[in-house]
Amino acid sequence: MNGIFVYSEDIAVTKQLLNIGRSLADVLQVNVTALALNETETDTAGLIACGAEKVIALSGSNPWVESYAESIAECIAKENPLLVLIGGTMRGKDVAARIAAWHSHGLVNSAMSIEVVERKLETKRMLYGGLAVCKEELSEGCIVTIDPRTYEEAAADPLRNGDVVACTAQSNDAVLVGGVCPIVRERADLANAEKIICVGRGLSSQSDMKLVEDLAEKIGAEIGCSRSIAEDYHWLPTESYIGLSGQKVKPQLYLSIGISGQVQHIVGARDARVIVAIDKNEKAPIFSAADYGIVGDLYEIVPKLIEKLGK
């Protein structure tokens, strides 16, 4: 077994994988192969500049990337890499799990880090919703998915050389894709926000969002939420929810209003510099994750905050 294999259906993510993939390969003194699916020649060549010795340029006529899992698995089997890095998007995880099954390999999803320790590869990932971190030594051929933006894109060096091998991919057309509808991004990017106010089920109705918006405006914050607010109540778009299955954020200030602070939520916010919580339940777990907190009814606290900040 040799080499590191990287793939994502999103070429920006492939470049992020090449960043970490290249540095692991340098330590292990092995080559990096990147797979590009239906990318232009320029984009494919860009992957060489970002650190791949070889690029497999797959092309096929089915626009649904999941339909190429078998083809990607075949490419991986031919290369027989000791590590496969796949971009941890939802589509990436779908493909990764099936490849892992066909090849009888391990799969670590959403690794937070990956490094070489005594010539063995080790990853860290969350367990129990973020309560714990699990460190594991990878078996050979293991697949690891890494969430987008975990690493920066590799710097392009146009002087790098490598081979581009073009292949035609065979899609599996068992799943028929009808309508595809993009979800329009309605809010600013929370990932880069300085201040975030996060609302949870403590808010009794959608019309009370106004209260939160007023406070956000006062302190110059973006608005995020817990999963239920986005997925059950639909008061805010999906990309606004923070946590294990949502966004990870690292603002200077994270202020929660009516969020109990279950670990699956707080795991997305605990890189914030300062965490502030407002909740009426003194025992809510959010308070043990907070720097500052007010135990009280948000309908009394928030208007008072707005009033005092106005002065």
């Binding site: 714990a132 460190k135 594991e136 293991c142 795991v267 003194e282 043990s288 007010i294 135990v295």
Partner: peptide, 22 residues
Amino acid sequence: LPKNKIKSIQGYAMDRKNEIYT
């Protein structure tokens, strides 16, 4: 037989000021 070898499972240490106004 599981594929990878678990080296450790450790709780995430939360280090916050915990100044709560009750």
